[in-house]
């Protein structure tokens, strides 16, 4: 196996949250014991409900936040202590909101070349040419070089964000809800573009999205998070065709394909949202799980290796193959 572009080893992140006036702060475990390795050329999707820790994990992978536990490796080398701009050379983000992620007072040209300035790229005289090439690659007309973000459509703004992310040829792009603020007609253009660029530039993606139809369409692997932990991971076609974890199953059952007459499926999920400050005992999913068993509330399930990936659930821990470490 090749060296992963990025590897996350047993990473955790705790935030101290005030629980009220004059009361002591309490720890919130936003990310907990996460392992993830992304191989070159993969599209790794990260899915899970709001607040489960996806963005926190992504921010640690970009060096914007340091882990409380564990380590993150780029090309096999731990990034702890690295300068942010060094990490930014290799890992670039594309965020959800193309409206707020672009500086309204800067022109398109200067937004796209920003990473070159920040990272101190060579040959400043060639930057404009590189920006123009990048604009062409992402399908932005050159006449927009001196335009401001408020003169662009939503799709064009997201293209600017993509051009900015790619100009210094990163290896890895982290897309956090890259199309959720966009119309479906613009979304399809951006997804096609991300696919083309992946082939053309040999990029590796981490894709965070609530839109599971999009994830299923472009991901090669997928990891499902619940309350800060990865509960299942596998090749996308395996995960989507034969989900093992009850939470993954509920998630996939909630996807509404545009088939009239099918109605809204019952997820069989309890409505009781967990309080992240008081994690449920045993399997943290047990209060909502449709398949909950007697000892799920007392015993913590461990990662179990299955063909192509792993799952963390007592239902899948019979018959050997249990593998507590990884």
């Amino acid at each position: 196996m090749s060296i992963p572009v990025i590897e996350v080893r047993d990473v955790g992140r705790t935030f101290m949250i005030s629980s009220g006036f004059m009361r002591p702060k309490r720890p919130l475990h936003a990310v907990n014991g996460v392992d993830l390795a992304i191989e070159p050329g993969e599209v790794m999707a990260l899915v899970g409900e709001s607040g489960c820790g996806k963005t926190t994990l992504a921010r640690m992978m970009m060096g914007l936040l340091s882990p409380s536990e564990g380590e993150i490796l780029l090309d096999g080398k731990p990034i702890a202590g690295w300068n942010r701009s060094v990490i930014a050379r290799a890992v670039q983000p594309i965020f959800q909101d193309p409206y707020s992620s672009l500086n309204p007072r800067k022109t398109v040209g200067s937004i796209i070349t920003l990473p070159l300035r920040v990272q101190g790229a060579a040959e400043p005289e060639g930057w404009t040419r590189r920006a123009e090439e990048m604009m062409e690659l992402v399908g932005l007309p050159r006449r927009l070089f001196n335009a401001y973000p408020n003169q662009l459509s939503g799709g064009q703004r997201q293209r600017v964000a993509i051009a900015r992310a790619l100009i210094n040829r990163p290896k890895m792009v982290i897309c956090d809800e890259p199309t959720s603020a966009l119309d479906v007609s613009v979304q399809s253009q951006i997804l096609n573009l991300l696919q083309d660029l992946r082939a053309e530039l040999g990029l590796t993606y981490l894709l965070i999205s609530h839109n599971l139809a999009v994830v299923e369409h472009i991901a090669t692997r997928a990891a499902v998070m619940y309350l800060g932990r990865i509960v299942e991971q596998n090749a996308a076609e395996v995960l989507f065709s034969a989900p093992r974890h009850p939470y993954t199953r509920a998630l996939l059952a909630s996807v509404l394909t545009p088939d009239p007459g099918l109605g809204v499926p019952d997820t069989h999920l309890g409505a009781s949202y967990p309080n992240p400050l008081e994690l449920p005992s045993g399997c943290t999913f047990h209060p909502r799980c449709a398949d909950v068993m007697d000892d799920c509330s007392s015993r913590i399930p461990v990662h179990t290796t299955v063909p192509g990936g792993h799952v963390t659930c007592h239902l899948h821990q019979n018959g050997g193959g249990s593998d507590a470490g990884t």
């Binding site: 409900e49 998630l251 499926p265 019952d266 997820t267 409505a271």
Partner: peptide, 9 residues
Amino acid sequence: ALDVTIQAQ
């Protein structure tokens, strides 16, 4: 703005 599971609910 909501998750698919809460959306279904």
